[in-house]
Write a protein that binds this DNA or RNA. Structure first.
Lengths: 344, 344
DNA sequence: TCTTCGAATGGGAGCGCTCCCAACTTTCGA
DNA sequence: TCGAAAGTTGGGAGCGCTCCCATTCGAAGA
């Protein structure tokens, strides 16, 4: 009605315009738009018609301002370009999160943090209350980013945990069981000099996979030897290097369990260079079941972790946490399973 | 000053609170926060101190509402889960975009569109003016998503183009040159029965790569034979299938240029199954230089396209377009180069 | 027919920020 | 010494929505 808005020409239709056209008040339109109860069928119809006619779409900034909700969640990936691109794990997580979120009104903000600058920027961002919750994957033990997020008090769900007493909600895959079954498989094949290449030990997943390796060995009465344990950082190069070391240290090694497919691929390369046949001389098992595992020569036996489902579960948990902020934190463990191909 | 805000306890500090503490007006604080000129050094200092003391962070929703800017851009990926996870190309694009954007105040919204529902949701979203601009990759010729985006009139930059007369701004890699040099390399190796496995022909990149193949052949005086051209859809399976077909149709084939690494990996598998040695019997070249290319057996010769740089360039172009909406559209072509490994 | 109570409704009062203009200072040249 | 010009500053008026309360309208019960 105000001559002001009439004079502004091309502005998009507002709630007020819809109300005017439908011949009702703003409150009623708002109720209809938000699906609130207490609107007569007649009014509802009139409003819906007006909305359709005007092509009205609510202005989110205005809504956010009024409700102090952001209608968005952030997915934080504190990793380098290399890992992001080389590990399909992240893409799967993203996909899972996105698909779960697509059922809701929430937007997905992607935040990659690799430099110190980006970390500082993140701090300001989170304080600006631009998101209702945070998802974060690939958390290292003393990750300053994780601590930053935790300190904001925003609803948060991690993919993986920082330690056994992780205070935040998280979704994890059964790393222990996965590693255990991989090594059991190797032992079942009659291998007795079973080595392992671990991931970075400041990540809980790495430690737990190592623990699974240990337990499988112990259970079978095979001694755990320090010489059979080498360390990597999940990258292919580190796997290659670690395998080369193992070969020097323990020439009799006849199997190796790697904490990631990428490292397993590196290990396979090192083995090939050393003239060892896979799996005849040395059996290899990876972890992740990334697409890569099917391309190696021979195709890799590996532990599948349901990464897309992890993303979905993370999103679901976050939604719950946003809905009921008081509730205590929860965790979800997703099971893994061994995919037997030809490398072991 | 208002007793209201005093009574509200834990609300985050507002512009007004900063103004009160600094002993200046709202306008002055706003100017300082936004780096506008016309603030005396004294006032500026006082405001900065107050900001630091209060830990003030501007509320973005309020700013958006007042300025009708969203301070965010969307990256739309209209692809299936499979491609997203299996092609590191997307991850690199994301990384490039994110890193370029981290220099600015803009947020990155990631939108994956695979289902019809998601597409409809996207429409409402874009109309809601929740972003200042749109980035979109993997555009197919008659992509309804692209048309949707185009119809919104939002500043838009594509990764790849839909056709030669693409009206929107875009960043592309030199598909023609890349394919050309790959095939020239094969010919230089003395191969004469050079096949190609194309990508989906509703994508311009696929057509152009095929055109590069043709030209290289023609220039060298080698006839282009329909029988040597097989079609895939960028997936590994399609590459395997296409290679199998080729082997049946043209048993004498001695080289194959594949429009993606993934298809090349599939082709290699088919060759292996057929008992052909790579590259002795059949040389293979891929396209992308994805991490995968280094893992195949033998390591794959492929055309590198600078995907992260593509993401960066897209973001830069979009920033320009947002800053100067009137300007005519632009395009950037990034060069590709051949990475020679062992498969050719 | 009159009262009572719940359902439906309109619209004021913000949410926190930017924009812009009027007003106030300072600084200079005449 | 005075006025103009330039530099600063404060704060009103929104941006479009939600929240909430006062009001209105009906229908059911007495």
């Amino acid at each position: 009605m105000s001559s002001r808005s009439a004079g502004r020409g091309e502005g998009r239709p507002t709630l007020e315009a819809v109300a005017a056209l439908a011949g009702v008040g703003r409150g009623t339109v708002s109720r209809v738009v938000n699906g609130a109860a207490g609107v007569s069928p007649r009014a509802r119809t009139a409003v819906e018609q007006a909305i359709a006619e005007l092509g009205y779409v609510p202005n989110r900034a205005a809504r956010s301002l009024a409700t102090s909700r952001a209608d968005a969640v952030a997915l934080i990936i504190p990793e380098t370009e290399t890992r992001l691109a080389s590990e399909p794990f992240f893409a799967s997580i993203i996909r899972g999160v996105a698909s779960e979120l697509s059922e809701t009104e929430l937007q997905l903000l992607l935040i990659l943090v690799s430099t110190e600058r980006e970390r500082r920027r993140l701090a300001g961002f989170l304080d600006g209350r631009r998101v209702d919750g945070v998802l974060m994957v690939s958390v290292h033990a003393d990750d300053p980013v994780a601590e930053l997020v935790e300190s904001t008090g925003l609803p948060t769900v991690l993919g993986g945990r920082r330690s056994e007493l992780e205070p935040l909600s998280y979704v994890n895959s059964d790393n222990l069981g996965g590693a255990w079954s991989a090594v059991r498989h190797l032992l079942g094949l009659g291998r007795r000099r079973v080595a392992t290449i671990t991931g970075p030990l400041d990540m809980e997943a790495s430690c737990v996979r190592l623990e699974g390796y240990r337990r499988a060995l112990e259970e079978t009465g095979v001694a755990v030897e320090a010489g059979l344990i080498a360390h990597g950082d999940f990258s292919e190069e580190s796997g290659e290097r670690a395998m080369a070391e193992l070969l020097v240290r323990e020439p009799a090694v006849d199997a190796v369990f790697c904490a990631s497919d990428l490292m397993a691929a590196g290990a396979m390369r090192a083995l090939r260079q050393a003239g060892r046949r896979i799996p005849t001389d040395v059996a290899v098992v990876g972890f992740d079941d990334s697409p890569l595992a099917r391309h190696t020569e021979p195709p890799m036996t590996t532990v599948r972790q349901p990464s897309e489902e992890m993303g979905r579960a993370m999103a679901r948990l976050l939604l719950e946490e946003i809905a009921a902020p008081g509730r205590s934190h929860r965790q979800i463990i997703l099971s893994t399973d061994l995919v037997v191909r030809e490398s072991a």
